[in-house]
Design a binder for these strands. Structure first.
Length: 724
DNA sequence: ACTGTTCGATTTTTT
DNA sequence: ATCGAACAGT
């Protein structure tokens, strides 16, 4: 026992030793929370003599699950495989494969990804004779997903909304559910919902898991949504030994349904909750921590806490005022080069940004400067067309009813199945009341062209050949289908410039399948894991600078971090979000995002903003981010671009440039001249042309749409505009 | 069924 | 500016 809590601070020890009853661990960034969870589980096993299979640990990402598995394996060894360490979704699949037949589903169900969801919605709209223009598939899908996560079924939505847009949504929702059931597919939300449904209908099944999971852990608890909360509440109801680990300051996914109130509700819904704060940070030096603390303390709605570090000192935070985005990127390239010269490695360095499009300029410059980089969350391997095609074949193989996957590949490679042929097939299916897959078995009766019949028979034979998975390893199945289906031939004959790399991707897929099959040669498990996987999972061992959105960087740490584009309207971002959560909440989430970004850095932090920036093809001017202003000045080492100082000389009589943005709290009516003081959409008035709205600002010109005179381009210097 | 062209959107996205 | 999806024409 002493070993397990050796080198732990008092609060960490308390978190590990408090095993009975509900426990809430509020773990600040870099406070060693993963270590605490793993040690706690080890403690349960070694000291409390808890069986491995009575322990459950839930994470959000596959990556976190994998990491936790490895760490626990290192302490506990072989028997650690009996601990359920899962993401919410993989845990649910595991339960559903066992019991979903009770709900009338085939246990071989396959899992939809979001692009497939969208195409289903489109299809349904078409069948119901609604136009995609009037009813945007994306928003419908979002409402359906939100409804599901609020545990509202199609009929609940239908009852609540009998008119207008929501009525259509309800109709689509209902059709969507039917379609999923018919095809024996579940979407991501379903995985959780069906488990709850199962537990509610069959208390004896719930009891199995309640009895089994005597000790439950939930990581990244601040990101749970209502359904997930409900699920863990149900599971923990019997033994009441539930340990949640989270940090309200790092909740950055509320726009995705994460419910920060779950932290507050936990203390209400469970009795006698023990709360432990982990506030000692082992990651960053105290300058970086002070900066992070001084930013986050501007949030009102949070548990008050202050991270501290024994790692005193450190160098000041570098703040670079760039002229434009190019200048910003050049500065970073320069800095990276000199950092590398002084002994840092590329992989110690990360560049973080608020939105993906901000990576473009950076990429270009890193490329021209021959600085190796990798982008987290760029085009995902599993999203690639050829990979998805092959996996669709596998989906059909394990789930013959998965018509969606079958449709995807029925004409890839070409088998002469266009719209006409499909209609004939559908016709046959309707008359004979059979599935598309079964139709393939009798395809000669459908009345297609000779070649199509032959090709589809061959397709059917391919499926049948590999349908008894026991005779083949997974990689053999994939490779076999790849060759037998004619996919390989198609790529070989293709003149497409990408076909080469497509073939490489397939071979990568086969290689990884081979590795998988050596551990577990179960094609169903394989396809499940692939459906639940995202590619940030595979770690990249290259020595390269990391480019990432701040969201995707959560949970990671780097010696040196650059945060770019710290400008109002970008970060914090202007959000014309469709939900009506209030401004305050949105701003606080932006601030949490800033907090997450800053706390990724261990030793060196570089911030930058640009005076002007190309956005969507236009030059825009944004004020420096409020988050920079929230950092005490004495922590900052400021640098200004030379280009910027020459700009300032031109406007030397206007040192006190006031930028104006949507979010500036104190916008004063002010007479402005010469300086670049306007933002797009600002209302202005002009002596001669009267009132208008700023449409664009390019270099020293401003384009304004005047109410009476229409669009005019004026020189900023002489325009003499007055801001309304 | 394939190809070229226009039009439109464009924050984040653990599963 | 840029990428993709929708649409129209061959």
């Amino acid at each position: 026992m002493t070993k397990l809590i050796e080198n732990m601070n008092e609060n960490q020890k308390k978190a590990i030793l408090t095993t009975e009853g509900p426990l809430m661990i509020i773990a600040g960034a870099g406070s060693g929370k993963t270590r605490v969870i793993t040690q706690r589980i080890a403690y349960l096993i070694y000291e409390k003599k808890v069986y491995e299979n009575n322990i459950l640990a839930i994470t959000f990402t596959n990556k976190a699950a994998k990491e936790m598995k490895e760490r626990i394996y290192n302490i506990v060894g072989e028997t650690s495989k009996y601990i359920w360490i899962n993401t919410f979704h993989s845990m649910c699949v595991r339960i559903l494969r066992e019991h979903i037949e009770n709900l009338g589903y085939n246990k071989n169900f396959t899992i939809l990804d979001s692009s497939e969801q969208k195409s289903i919605i489109k299809n349904i709209l078409k069948n119901l004779n609604y136009s995609e223009n009037d009813y945007e598939p994306k928003s419908i899908l979002k409402i359906i997903s939100n409804s599901k996560n609020e545990y509202k079924k199609a009929k609940d939505v239908a009852e609540a909304s009998r008119f207008g847009f929501m009525k259509v949504v309800a109709e689509v929702y209902s059709e969507y559910e039917k379609y999923l059931k018919k095809n024996a597919v579940l979407d991501f939300d379903d995985l959780l919902i069906k488990v709850i449904e199962l537990f509610e209908k069959y208390p004896e099944i719930l009891a199995i898991y309640q009895n089994k999971f005597k000790y439950i852990h939930v990581d990244e608890y601040q990101d749970t949504n209502l359904i997930q909360y409900k699920l863990i509440t149900m599971l923990a109801a019997l033994h009441n030994n539930i340990c949640i680990v989270g940090d309200d300051d790092q909740s950055i996914y509320s726009w995705r349904g994460a419910c920060i109130d779950n932290i507050k509700n936990f203390e209400k819904d469970f009795k006698n909750v023990e709360v432990v704060f982990l506030d000692q940070n082992y990651r960053s030096n105290s300058i970086i921590l002070t900066a992070a603390n001084s930013v986050i303390k501007n949030n009102v709605d949070r548990k008050d806490k202050n991270l501290w570090s024994e790692n005193k000192g450190g160098s000041k935070i570098n703040l670079y005022h760039a002229f434009n985005d190019l200048d910003e990127a050049e500065n970073i390239s320069r800095k990276i080069k000199s950092l590398v010269k002084t002994g840092k490695e590329y992989k110690d360095i990360a560049i973080l940004y608020r939105a993906n499009y901000l990576s473009r300029t950076l990429e270009n410059l890193l490329l021209t400067n021959s600085i190796p980089y990798k982008i987290i969350g760029s085009l995902k391997f599993l999203q690639r067309q050829e990979v998805k095609d092959l996996l669709s074949y596998i989906n059909v193989l394990v789930n013959n009813n998965d018509e969606l996957s079958l449709r995807r590949i029925i004409n890839v490679p070409r088998r002469g199945i266009g719209q006409g042929a499909l209609e004939k097939i559908e016709n046959y299916m309707a008359i004979n009341n059979t599935t598309m897959y079964n139709t393939l078995a009798n395809i000669e009766k459908v009345g297609l062209s000779k070649k199509s019949v032959k090709d589809l028979q061959s397709l059917y034979n391919t499926f049948e050949k590999y349908s008894d998975g026991d005779n083949f390893s997974i990689d053999q199945i994939i490779m076999g289908i790849y060759v037998d289906s004619g996919y390989e031939e198609m790529l070989k004959n293709s003149k497409d410039e990408y076909s080469e790399s497509r073939m490489e991707n397939i071979s990568e897929l086969v290689t990884s399948a081979k590795e998988y099959s050596e551990i577990n040669n179960n094609i169903m498990d394989y396809i499940t894991e692939m459906s639940l996987a995202s590619d940030s999972d595979d770690e990249n061992l290259d020595n390269a600078v990391t480019l990432s959105t701040i969201h995707a960087s959560k949970g990671l740490e780097y010696d040196t971090v650059f945060i770019v584009a710290l400008e109002e309207n970008i970060f914090p971002s202007v959000m014309n979000s469709d939900d009506l959560t209030d401004e305050q909440n949105k701003m606080e989430e932006e601030r949490r995002l800033a907090y997450v970004a800053i706390t990724r850095a261990k030793n060196n932090l570089y911030l930058s903003n640009a005076n002007r920036r190309m956005q969507f093809g236009n030059t825009k001017f944004n004020e420096i981010s409020r988050f920079i202003k929230e950092i005490p000045e004495d922590l900052l080492l400021e640098e200004r671009s030379l280009q910027l100082s020459s700009l300032n000389k031109i406007n030397s009589d206007n040192n006190n440039i006031t930028y104006i943005s949507k979010y500036s709290p104190k916008i004063k009516e002010k007479k402005l001249s010469k300086a670049y003081n306007f933002n797009i959409y600002d209302k202005v008035s002009h002596k001669k042309f009267g009132k208008g709205i700023v449409k664009n600002i390019i270099e020293d010109s401003i384009i304004i749409k005047f109410e009476e005179y229409g669009e005019k381009t004026l020189l900023l210097e002489y325009a003499n505009l007055i801001k309304e």
